[in-house]
Design a protein around this nucleic acid. Sequence first.
RNA 1: GCCCUUGUAGCUCAACAGGAUAGAGCAGGACCCUUCUAAGGUCAAGGUUGGAGGUUCGAGCCCUCCCAAGGGCACCA
Length: 544
Amino acid sequence: MRKKIEQILKKETGEEFRLERAPEGRGDYASNTAFLLAKKEKKSPSELAKSLKKKVKADIFSKVEEENGFLNFFLSENALKEEAFLVLEEKENYGKGNAGKTVVIDYSSPNIAKSFGIGHLRSTIIGQAIYNIHEFLGWKVIGVNHLGDWGTQYGKLIYQIKKEGKNPEKLSLKELEEIYVRFHKEAEKNPEMEEEGRKWFAKLEKGDEEARRVWEICRKKSLDEFEKIYRDLNVEIDYVLGESFYEDKLEDVVKEAEKKKVAKKSKGALIIEFGDMPPAMILKSDGSTTYLTRDMAAAKYRLKEFSPDLLIYEIGVDQTLYLRQLFSAVEKMGWAKKEKFVHVGHGMFRLKEGRFSTRKGRTVHLEEVLSLAKKKAEEIIESSATAKGLSREEKKEASKIIGIGAVKYNDLKRHYKRDVVFDWDQVLTLKGDSGPYLQYTCVRCESVLEKAGKYKKEMEELNDEERKIVRRIVQFEEALENAAENFSPNVIAEYAFRLAKEFNHFYDTCQIVGSDKRLAITDATRIILKKCLNLLGISVPQKM
RNA sequence: GCCCUUGUAGCUCAACAGGAUAGAGCAGGACCCUUCUAAGGUCAAGGUUGGAGGUUCGAGCCCUCCCAAGGGCACCA
């Protein structure tokens, strides 16, 4: 809608317009074009705005006003209605794009031999939302789970397992994590253990049978566990291409880097220098590879295999420097321009008391969060009047959808960039600005529509309440676009919350059943809200 | 030490390119269920956008300095 109007305005006035949402009571769209022109032409903005106003004739507007240099555009009733009917017609396809480009998204990417911590939740959920949004806009999207399944840490783990004489088959992920923690504790006193760990990783890289066997077991166990969590979270990642996948591609990368003189020797290791950043290593002095070597191989592979227009890395902000180095290294190698790469660096979870720390026992396991959220939803659903009549099975299913929705939304409503202070009360909120609030509003629409039965797709004159919601519905595409451009699912979350809030107010003040126009508005609201939630990876229960 | 990021109501967060009166939720206060789902709604209260300068017709957003917090800086990933 906005783009359409911008085009019309350009045609009629010959000027570039960049519309923004108008403040309450000042129409539907506003423009500051006159101010921008005023600077260039040294004229008064107000004068310019007035002369621009005269040129605008499109009947998509009911009126155009000039106020202190701003131009305020009021959409005509017809334009609004037509757009609302379009929603009803196209349903869940309303707003679908046809970008025709390809994007590879690296997200979730947990480390193996560790339980899935709350830390990986953000990458998983935000990554999936960005995936959904791009897909809906017509991108070909390839999701990659860059599993952390290779590296010295597994040498250390194998060493410690052997030292403790444990049978890896019988260890749970939690126990593996504990063993790894013990290694670090002991290594503080015996630094030579670090060397042992590195040796075992070198063995692993050379294909040592024993090292290989233990590693395989750990990997398999982790994958099984992660699968379970992904299923719960309703997340499906197209490819699991862990770091180990690139094992046989690393030598080529190293050789190519040497040949192209991108890398050079330093203190027995092989490094890449950048000038504006500290150097990074691709080969350690003992000849084993690093994280960067594998990520370079991964980038090369993705570029070749998928020919993407864009590569998104949804990884914590603590990796910012590292990823800048990676993107720069890829460019130095001549594989792609670094502008093709984007790091969506989400802020880290923290506790009020400080950082999460496995060693200090300050951890929160995702499983625990999800099960508590489900439990709380279950309690509310039991005491809820509106969920009466649900069977026990249905209640259980609904609590699962609601609990998980709450956890996801709590994460997605924030701007990805900022740290999150982990607070049980907030994660488990089922009221107010929360996932369940949106789900509830959706279900509420559904319930009203069901009660009303069929309605005629007609709309007579809109009153203020009705108009307000239709205006909001029309803004959906803008929110969607904004979310995609900035890799910010929170824009959609916020938009959906606004719509839900306005709808609930409308619901409270207007009798819906019995009015075709109001039923049409309710239906459109339902479609858009559900779409928003789906894009965020949140399902809606039948009843709640 | 160097580099990056952040600072908005008591708490947790929004604010779409630098735009008009800075918006929500939670907590606390006063109300609304014999009308369509009260996980809802209404009203009131809550702010010198960390501080000081500057640029601009206009600054939470841009620049400089200061303060505070977080993160990163070669054999972890």
